[in-house]
Amino acid sequence: MAAPGFLEADGRNMSRATVLMLMAPFFALVIFAFLYPLANLLSISVLEPQPTLEHYQRVAENPVYARVLFRTLQIALLVSLLSLALSLPVAVLMANSRGPKAIFLTACILLPFWSSVLVRTAAWAILLQRNGIINQTLQFIGITDEPVRLLYTQGAVVVAMTHVLMPFMVLPIYGALRNIPADYSRAAAICGAGPLRTFWEVTLPLAMPGIIGGFILVFLTALGYFITPALLGSPQEMMIATLISQQMRENLDWPFAAALVGVLTLIVTVITLAFSKVFRFERMLGGRV
Rank of each mutant, 00 (worst) to 15 (best):
M1S: 04
A2F: 04
A3R: 07
G5C: 02
L7Q: 00
E8D: 06
A9G: 11
S15Q: 06
L29Y: 01
I31P: 05
F32Q: 04
F34Y: 15
Y36E: 03
L47Y: 04
L53A: 10
L53R: 05
L53P: 04
E54F: 06
H55G: 01
N62F: 06
A66Y: 03
L69M: 14
A76I: 00
V79M: 03
S80I: 05
S80A: 11
A85C: 07
M94K: 03
M94Y: 10
T106P: 00
I109R: 02
V119N: 04
V119M: 05
R120M: 11
A123W: 00
Q129P: 05
G142M: 05
I143R: 08
T144H: 12
P147D: 15
G155S: 06
A156S: 11
L177R: 01
L177Y: 12
A187F: 10
L196C: 13
A207R: 06
P209A: 09
F226D: 08
P229Q: 03
P235N: 02
P235F: 01
Q236T: 08
M239H: 01
L243H: 06
I244S: 08
I244Q: 10
S245Y: 12
Q246A: 07
R249Q: 14
P255I: 05
F256Q: 12
F256S: 10
L260A: 11
V261F: 11
G262H: 09
V263Q: 14
T265M: 13
L266K: 00
I267N: 01
V268Y: 02
K277I: 03
V278M: 14
F279T: 04
G287M: 10
